[in-house]
Design a protein around this nucleic acid. Sequence first.
DNA 1: GCAGGATAGATGCATTTGCATCTACTTGAA
DNA 2: TTCAAGTAGATGCAAATGCATCTATCCTGC
Lengths: 152, 152
Amino acid sequence: MRTPTVREAAEAWESLFRAQVAVMRRLSRDPAFRRLGIKEYDVLFTLSACPGGGLRLNELNDHVLLAQSSLSRLVERLDKQGLVTRESAPEDGRGIVVRLTDAGRGLQREIGRAHVREIARILDGALDSEELAALQRLTARLREHVVANHPL
Amino acid sequence: MRTPTVREAAEAWESLFRAQVAVMRRLSRDPAFRRLGIKEYDVLFTLSACPGGGLRLNELNDHVLLAQSSLSRLVERLDKQGLVTRESAPEDGRGIVVRLTDAGRGLQREIGRAHVREIARILDGALDSEELAALQRLTARLREHVVANHPL
DNA sequence: GCAGGATAGATGCATTTGCATCTACTTGAA
DNA sequence: TTCAAGTAGATGCAAATGCATCTATCCTGC
């Protein structure tokens, strides 16, 4: 229960980051992403997991590692491909609500099925069930804390 | 000790990935990276942590989330800035050994000091010492397993 | 020794990215 | 109300990225 040292924090982050690189590099090679890049998929996935089915651009931006302008254009491309729609936000004339089309939802599900299988394949044998749960719990708390205490 | 389900693996990965996005997004904003991008810094850091002080381009590439051609040009830029040197590999005429210059080592240390402090600041209060250690252990094992069992 | 395949890295080129900036809209205080 | 400051996204433009391909070198079996 000690307060962590600077070194402990840096080493844990470094380890987390390298693991992410190793896994992501392999996941990106999945042929499932030939039809749609992994960042584009990530946007569709985030939208699919959203209760209302619509998200503001700036909310979307919190989930993706892209500059605001890059996300703006990525969503524009998805729109042109017919995978999402962009409507003006009802309560804020500046805002844009992004929403999955049926085609977008269909493609997300299709890619998602293959992607989830690939994740399981890559992680298979690395950690047991309890360890995966611990990892999930720790990273979720890390994220929550960071989001809550360090606004952008 | 159960074997994980596909769902458990996918959810743990998702959580790890989102935490990485949240932390990385905030770390990138550090003014320490005004002099040198975070990817460029990452290459200098990887070189600085290397015993011999030199690394082959393809070894470097394992640590960074960049295509081979992108890393090739990133290192070319670092070379032009006088931060690294590129020599032909002694045992393999095709290979390039990348090595920090004194300037490169100096800049890495300078940015690194600020960066480590910023990591500690961002993570502060999120996890205690034991939890950070657990996170490090789990992610290190994940990475090792993935690297060992899924060559690129 | 040599031909065929594999591997390391460089390069042309189209696409994507981020920075700076711009416009439009909202908010809050006088 | 009005106006200054703040926020949401879009856009021009230069830089970075990835794909496909190219060259050079290495390795393997004959």
